[in-house]
């Protein structure tokens, strides 16, 4: 679907709905990455000026050094038309883990009308517990200050953050957003749903009853223990 616009030894650019995808060749020697980025800055300024860029590392395992080259390149470009990185894509779990640990946005950016994005950005702050039989559904992120009891349901098109116990059903990214996450300060939910995927949670898991962040990575549920 992308249209090729420029070719270098290590990277090439593709036009996408969200902006530009900067793909790092899987087989290329990364020693040339620095010089390629510099060349791109000089020759491709007209393309990159003001562009929204997604950096795609494909299957390759990338180190901090390469990431910092990109960061350096984009920070230097700041004064000339401000291209900015929307997100980072990697099909390699080690690289993806590193990118997430750095706090970067990962995955293909969501596209949609600006009004839809605006609506989705609005968060719902719910300052009660959700008891059995109660259900809240919201287009944006949902923050529950109380508990979600067994039999209660929270459905959100965005992320779900539960500051109490999560014992009921939480469905994040209900519109199909695989990048949505669920966090609970005390995670005791027997089932979680993100986008169109469902996972059954084993009570003997080490993170059961603890602070946990649940997300999807390559279609697989990943849980990260997180105490706050």
């Amino acid at each position: 679907m992308g249209q090729e616009t420029c070719e270098l030894r290590t990277i090439h650019l593709k036009g996408e709905v969200y902006g530009l995808r900067m793909v790092v060749h899987e087989q290329a020697d990364l020693k040339a990455l620095g010089s390629d980025l510099q060349r791109l800055g000089e020759e491709g300024e007209h393309i990159l000026s003001g562009a929204k860029v997604v950096v795609d590392f494909q299957e390759r395992e990338i180190g901090l050094q390469e990431v910092s080259l990109f960061l350096e390149y984009f920070s230097r470009k700041g004064e000339r038309g401000e291209p900015r990185i929307l997100s980072w894509i990697s099909n390699n779990s080690t690289t993806l883990g590193m990118l997430k640990n750095l706090g970067f946005v990962t995955g293909i950016p969501e596209t949609g009308s600006s009004s839809e994005r605006e609506r989705n950005r609005k968060s719902l702050l719910y300052d009660h517990s959700i008891r059995s039989g109660q259900r809240i559904e919201h287009g944006g992120d949902v923050v529950v200050l109380g508990n979600v009891h067994d039999g209660g349901e929270v459905v959100s098109r965005g992320n779900i953050l539960v500051l109490g116990k999560l014992q009921g059903v939480a469905h994040a990214g209900s519109g199909g957003d695989v990048g949505a996450t669920i966090f609970a300060r005390i995670f005791e939910a027997p089932q979680v749903r993100i986008a169109h995927k469902v996972s059954y949670v084993d009570q003997s898991s080490s993170w059961w009853g603890k602070g946990s962040l649940v997300m999807l990575e390559d279609g697989v549920f990943v849980v990260q223990e997180m105490d706050i």
């Binding site: 009660h128 959700i130 008891r131 059995s132 039989g133 109660q134 009891h149 067994d150 039999g151 209660g152």
Partner: peptide, 12 residues
Amino acid sequence: VRDADRIIGMLE
């Protein structure tokens, strides 16, 4: 207990 939880929600 689950039914009580449901009823508490309704009473609220």
